[in-house]
Design a protein around this nucleic acid. Structure first.
Lengths: 142, 142
DNA sequence: ATGCGATCTACAGCCACTGTAGGTTCAAGC
DNA sequence: GCTTGAACCTACAGTGGCTGTAGATCGCAT
């Protein structure tokens, strides 16, 4: 049986995060010691590892909830799992595309600035006037 | 003189967001009509446009606060402006790198799955066992 | 028995907004 | 001048995914 701290260390999670996952129903309520402290077994360790790894791959907690549910019915088609993963891939690709556009714009902005005074700074000029900007970035998103 | 709604439309901002910027001191407290409604002039329009454009380029509100302060002293060297922009560029590049790693991992994961049942789904297997994963992604970040 | 690190609950804070409720003001049309 | 309805006002709660704090309690080694 593992204490919450040991579970945290084993999975690279913070203790509070584990309690948070329990609170939102992503982790089950574990057994308790006589004094009321949480005690975890192997199943919980696996589940938390799954959650953490999925988070590292950028899945939202909602998506992870879905993946966990799906993985509870081994006889089902895994088409839905594929769909969740595909969606995540598309989101990642979209974010990359947006960030690439930002990168270009930032580079251009920085590259153009030859001024030494704030008064003539190209960077500030571009920020002031959207028309100077080539990209049609709408939201930073991330 | 512009109402908050007009200002919002002109800058592509939500009304609440403008009030939020005022609340955190990023936008100044504007004049008011007799009935107490906010009234904005050209300076505020410019300032908000600057803020929005900077946000679109991914600058944090804190960074924008700094840029706005810097742009208030035109005689200063623009080295600090450059530094802020450079930092932002580096952050964007770092995010892109991380997302690229995620993209590769997701693609590999999805590409490997030839199963039709959840029981043998490669995607779930990879998520379950970190060792199956090539990338050393630590945080999704964004 | 004692000490101290780990754990407990409950709650506030982070970022950058977004949404809601319930009330007031403004401007256009008659 | 009056009515209407859209726009505005304040205040506060909620989003996602945690993270940090305070003050009390537990567990284990000495």
């Amino acid at each position: 049986m593992l204490s919450i701290g040991t579970l945290a260390k084993r999975t690279g999670t913070k203790v509070q995060t584990i309690r948070y996952y329990e609170q939102i129903g992503l982790m089950p309520e574990p057994g308790r010691s006589e004094g009321g402290q949480r005690r975890y077994g192997a199943a919980e360790l696996d589940r938390l590892a799954f959650i953490r790894h999925s988070r590292q791959l950028g899945f939202s907690l909602e998506a992870i909830r879905e993946l966990l549910e799906l993985s509870d019915s081994p006889e089902r088609s895994c088409a839905q799992v594929d769909a969740v993963a595909q969606k995540q891939l598309h989101e990642v690709e979209a974010r990359i595309a947006r960030l690439e556009a930002l990168r270009m714009e930032l580079q251009r902005m920085i590259g153009e600035c030859r001024a030494d005074r704030v008064a003539n700074c190209r960077i500030l000029e571009v920020l002031r006037d959207h028309e100077e900007c080539l990209a049609d970035h709408d939201r930073p998103g991330s």
